[in-house]
Design a protein around this nucleic acid. Sequence first.
DNA 1: GTTCGTGCAAATCGTTTGCAGGAAT
DNA 2: ATTCCTGCAAACGATTTGCACGAAC
Lengths: 146, 146
Amino acid sequence: MNKLYSLYECIQEKGYKLTEKRKIILQVLVDNKDYLLEPSEIFEKVLKVDKNINFSTIYRNLEIFLNAGIAKKVSLENGKSSYQIIFEKEHVHSMICKICGRVEVINTCPFEKIDNEIFEKKGFLPESHKFEIYGFCKECLLEKNF
Amino acid sequence: MNKLYSLYECIQEKGYKLTEKRKIILQVLVDNKDYLLEPSEIFEKVLKVDKNINFSTIYRNLEIFLNAGIAKKVSLENGKSSYQIIFEKEHVHSMICKICGRVEVINTCPFEKIDNEIFEKKGFLPESHKFEIYGFCKECLLEKNF
DNA sequence: GTTCGTGCAAATCGTTTGCAGGAAT
DNA sequence: ATTCCTGCAAACGATTTGCACGAAC
């Protein structure tokens, strides 16, 4: 039932060891489960818990979390990468706040509504897709008085 | 009527000068209008026309083309950026070939089909969105025998 | 003539890697 | 005991910047 525990399991199932650093980074991701975080943001938050952590450990473990299927990586409009923990493996799309990185889930998938005829006509074989809405979340709207 | 000429106009309207280098880079983008090109690819193609061009000139001008609204930048899944010329300012979505970077246009917009209720409920103000389908184009499928 | 654009080299930013010691299994 | 993980420092690739000269207006 414990979310953290099932994440630990995913890591160990893949043959990765369950280290202290790994637990701390995971905890930070879980604490910010509704936000997309850049590696530097993750690093800073982890630093507050463990002063003796290296940036390369962050990168190496983010990569491992991706492999274990417990995190996702998003290439944002500005060209930077951000990461977010994923609990349910289901396929979802997002509304992303351009100010704070908060992510809200959209429960419909536009891809399912597309007429397959367009792929047949072009001879294109679709493999994956991306649907993201960028804007401003309620909290940031109130704060910034837009 | 000439496409190149109207691109020149866009550049000059913004107060940028119409230089030889700028024309060459534009020509390369126009010649590859159906493809997303990485800066390094653009650089190589420009080199064939003008041996005396610097990489920084490519970057500086791509930025200017973005400002002038005649090119678009796409942050791909691998974290790299690619560029493409845009003729019509209309809003379109794309199918992108993961092998050759070929871009085919999708003429429906999934955003329009979304129920606005979800934004009202979350208090989210949408500003822009992205819908991209990644896969393999006909040519690459034939060539690689997938 | 003034402003802007360019090549060059160096700087910067985000990310990755080799290695040697330390921790998890 | 073995394998994996980590900090450190260095390397790396993509992109940006300061400068002095040259080109467009």
